[in-house]
Amino acid sequence: MSKKHIYLISGLGADERVFSRLSFPEDCDVHYLPWINPLGPDEPIQEYASRLSRRILHPNPVLLGLSFGGMMSIEIAKQQPVEKVIIVSSVKHKEELPPYYSGMARLLLRNLPDRLLFGNRHYIVKLFMQSRSEEEKMLLKDYLRKRDFRYMRWALAAVLNWQNEWVPPSTVHIHGSADRPFPRRYVNPTHTIVKGGHFMVMNRAQEISRIIEKELA
């Protein structure tokens, strides 16, 4: 039996450590797909996805994306055959974005200087991420130390301006009922983790792993 190849794509500014508590079936080889720098502030998400997908070395992979990584997984699936797309704490199309991710948010992103836009972001990040354990809090601290605001501006703009209307037929959507960045009332997931927050990939990893194992069986 040939092995499945799973490519993991983390959330905005995060890395492979957010997936450290997930477990995968024995017949799966797991690969992490790291973020790359955008070519410029206006690089379309489709072109970015095309460049990122060049690092996928196996045909017909499974893509597992967290938050912004889920959106990127769908963009990659538009451009190459995939066996399945699994998104966690994410959205599938533009209609699942909260309505307040719209005109005013885009205007603020375009016009506020870095010191105002990112200067006090630790309050928003801590509120949205809903971290619990010391390990989770340390990951957030590492994220908040990053100063690549060009990437952050590009990624935030990509989220706010996402116009996708197509959903891969094989998509599995795992979402928490208490998610703050993408509230549950706006999305239609295939699986809901009761009281799961945006960091549930770590603090509800066993439940998510069981869903993944079942979906890949």
Results as ranks from 00 to 15, higher is better:
S2V: 12
K3Q: 13
H5W: 06
L8H: 11
L8R: 01
I9D: 06
I9E: 04
G11F: 01
L12A: 08
V18T: 04
V18S: 03
S23E: 10
C28L: 11
H31R: 02
L33T: 10
L33M: 02
W35E: 09
I36G: 04
I36K: 06
N37A: 15
E43R: 07
Q46K: 08
Y48N: 03
R51E: 09
R51A: 05
R55T: 03
V62Q: 08
V62I: 14
L64K: 09
G65H: 06
L66A: 08
L66W: 15
G69L: 13
M72F: 06
M72I: 14
I74P: 14
Q79A: 01
P81T: 01
K84V: 00
K84L: 04
V85W: 07
I86D: 00
I87K: 05
V91D: 01
H93N: 15
P99T: 04
Y100G: 00
Y101F: 15
S102N: 13
G103D: 06
M104W: 03
L107A: 10
N111A: 04
G119I: 07
R121F: 04
I124L: 13
L127F: 14
Q130F: 13
E134H: 09
K137I: 00
R147V: 08
F149A: 00
W154R: 07
A155G: 14
L156I: 12
L156S: 12
A158H: 12
A158S: 15
V159C: 13
Q163M: 09
E165H: 11
E165G: 05
W166E: 15
W166V: 12
P168N: 13
P168Y: 04
P168M: 09
P169F: 10
S170K: 08
S170L: 03
T171R: 09
A178K: 08
D179W: 12
P181I: 03
F182M: 00
F182C: 06
R184E: 01
N188F: 01
N188V: 03
P189V: 06
P189I: 05
T190I: 00
I193V: 15
G196D: 01
G196K: 11
M200I: 07
M202E: 12
Q206D: 14
I208Q: 09
S209H: 03
I211V: 12
E215S: 07
